[in-house]
Each structure stands twice: as structure tokens, then as C-alpha cells.
């Protein structure tokens, strides 16, 4: 069963220079108890995707068509207060920047109390909950931690507190938006392990967004590769990493610094840059930068599926 099903999601923004299509026909599923990774370079639409799911798109953005089915309920049809009822309870989020993600002038304990504002528990029970969550994310000296303020904790601890807050209401879906990007390598491993532990204890699904291929390979069951607002390829982690079908995925994997066999001064890159989404042509979105581009790439590429792995590329038809 799928916790989250995204079907043909199209999101547009009204800008001064006309309409910008930030997401085009995005479809993928997050099955129960699984960790799905979304990988892609900056500007590929990861943040827009998260904001669409959370119902927190900026005022000039709208879901043009498509569905976001969460536990069978289409989120695009809910009003803002219905969405608010889901956020923090059924769908929770950990953001990238642990330094700025917590309110600087409200104590950790009070912020954790606020998150439980819907619950009918007494204040001391809520505080017990908060302390228990801090224990689960291994924050030492929990009672005093509750009375302290975010700036009194290190970056890694702040991110663990943010995770504790996100997990406190035992959500069905956790969205993790590059939760380890701002942390150093050792903290990154510890945070990933912590997320894995908690995911198993709580039994939630995770939508894990990162541009760190190593972390994705380590943590995720399935991977969705996004490029310029489109899903170019998706499949299990094994499929994506061992048998990429889309040229973009191939090039992306080649660019992973961890995959370099010898020392080099020049890391491989993909030539060219992300296309201007306001000037979108009907052909393949990656055509301009693709190393196996042909004439047919100017027409819309088909979605080809092989054993659950699918990609949008003309090359796969031949």
C-alpha cells in the first residue's frame, strides 16, 4: 500500500515574465514503511514538490493539475485548515538548515508543547512526551534541555531536536529535506542512522530529499531522479545505481565525487545548465545537455517501464 501517491502533478508559478512550470507531470509513490529518495541538482523542483505536498506553496504558485494522494485523500482538494490538521501530525518535515529551523526566542520545551497543541493531554504529560522524544534522539540532560533555547545547542543537536519535533506526533510520512546537508560528515552518518532507527520504531514512510548520492544509496529503498521539474527516472535504489536507464542519471552517477577511482584535479560535470523553465519546448527536457541526443529528442519522450523501473527517454524504445 502506498502512503503517498503523486499523480501527474503540475505546479506553475506566475512570475513577472509569464508563467513558470516548476513541476511537469511528476508521478511517483511512497509505499508504506519505505524510504524514498529524491535526487536532483539545485532548481530541479525538490522544494516546490515538498511545498506542494505540505500545501505551503507561495501565493503565486498553484497546482495546475494532478493529484497528491495521501492515505487515499487528495491533498490538492483540501482547504488550508484541513491541510493544517495533517501537518505535524500525519505528515511531518525536517528541514535542511538546523541553525534556522527552530525559533530562536522560544525554549525547546515550549516549542515542543506547541506542536502538541491539538492533543488533549495535560501540560505535564506533554512535557513528558517531549522529554521522551529527546531521549530517543539521544539529547543528554533532557529536563534542562527543554528549558534551553536553540542557540545553546550545537548544529548536530539542533538537527536531532528538529527530528524529535518532527517525529513527536508519530507521523505516517516524514519529509526530510536535505536534513544532513548542513552537517559535517561524521554527524551526517549519525543523523542518517538516527533517522533509520526512528523510522523503524515508528513505522513511518520517509521522503528523503538529497543531492548526496552516497546518502541516498545508503538510506533509501527507492529513488526518484528529478531534473528541471520532471521525474526523469525512478526505480529501486539498486536499479538506479546499478542499471540507470536515463542518460541524465548516468551522468549524475558519473559526477559523484565518491565514485572517482583516481585522484583528479577536475571532477566530472554535466556540460550546459538547467533550462529556463519559462521557455520550455515540447521535447525531452534534458536534450540540450544530453550526450546521446538525436533528432527524435525534439518530440516528447515516452515513459518506458522495465521491472518497476521507469524513465522518460527515446533511447529506451529502440
Amino acid at each position: 500500500m502506498n502512503i503517498l501517491e503523486i499523480q501527474n502533478l503540475n505546479v506553475t508559478f506566475d512570475t513577472e515574465d509569464g508563467q513558470l512550470r516548476a513541476l511537469r507531470d511528476v508521478s511517483f509513490n511512497v509505499p508504506e514503511h519505505r524510504i524514498v529518495g529524491i535526487v536532483g541538482e539545485s532548481g530541479c523542483g525538490k522544494s516546490t514538490l515538498i511545498n506542494s505536498i505540505l500545501g505551503l506553496l507561495a501565493d503565486n504558485g498553484q497546482v495546475e493539475k494532478g493529484k497528491i494522494l495521501f492515505e487515499g485523500q487528495n491533498l490538492t482538494e483540501l482547504n488550508s485548515s484541513q491541510l493544517r490538521e495533517l501537518r505535524g501530525v500525519r505528515i511531518s518535515t525536517v528541514f535542511q538548515d538546523p541553525m534556522g529551523a527552530l525559533n530562536p526566542v522560544i525554549s525547546v520545551g515550549t516549542q515542543m508543547l506547541h506542536i502538541q497543541y491539538r492533543s488533549s493531554l495535560s501540560k505535564s504529560e506533554k512535557l513528558d512526551n517531549a522529554a521522551e522524544m529527546l531521549r530517543r534522539v539521544r539529547i543528554p540532560d533532557r529536563e534542562s534541555a527543554l528549558t534551553r533555547y536553540p542557540h545553546e545547542f550545537s548544529g548536530g543537536m539542533k538537527q536531532r531536536i528538529a527530528i524529535a519535533m518532527a517525529m513527536m506526533m508519530e507521523p505516517a510520512l516524514l519529509i526530510a529535506d536535505e536534513p544532513t546537508t548542513a552537517l559535517d560528515a561524521t554527524l551526517e552518518v549519525a543523523t542518517i542512522e538516527l533517522l533509520q532507527d526512528l523510522q523503524q520504531q515508528i513505522g513511518c514512510s520517509v521522503l528523503f530529499i538529497s543531492h548526496h548520492l552516497g546518502v541516498i544509496a545508503e538510506l533509501c529503498d527507492d529513488v526518484v531522479v528529478m531534473y528541471a521539474g520532471e521525474v526523469v527516472e525512478r526505480g529501486t535504489t539498486r536499479q538506479i545505481f546499478y542499471r540507470p536507464m536515463h542518460p541524465y542519471t548516468e551522468r549524475l552517477l558519473q559526477c559523484d565525487p565518491a565514485g572517482q577511482s583516481e585522484r583528479t584535479r577536475h571532477l566530472p560535470t554535466i556540460p550546459g545548465e538547467i533550462p529556463d523553465l519559462r521557455l520550455r519546448t515540447p521535447g525531452c527536457i534534458f536534450a540540450a545537455r544530453c550526450h546521446c541526443r538525436e533528432d527524435i529528442c525534439d518530440s516528447t519522450p515516452p515513459e518506458v517501464e522495465i521491472e518497476g523501473q521507469s524513465a522518460r527517454c527515446h533511447r529506451l524504445v529502440a
Partner: peptide
């Protein structure tokens, strides 16, 4: 615009609480 306000919204806190407690106090 701060990211902690985005976090507060992502936790589904009521807009009044966000405006007066989370934003105005700063």
C-alpha cells in the same frame, strides 16, 4: 520569511500563534 516560520507552518501550528508568538516576539 525565516526558515523557523516555515518549520512552524510545517508543524501545522495555528497562524495566530505563528504571527504573534513565533514572529512578533522577534
Amino acid at each position: 520569511e525565516a526558515s523557523h516560520i516555515r518549520t512552524a507552518r510545517a508543524f501545522g501550528l495555528p497562524e495566530r500563534l505563528i504571527t504573534y508568538r513565533y514572529a512578533l516576539t522577534i
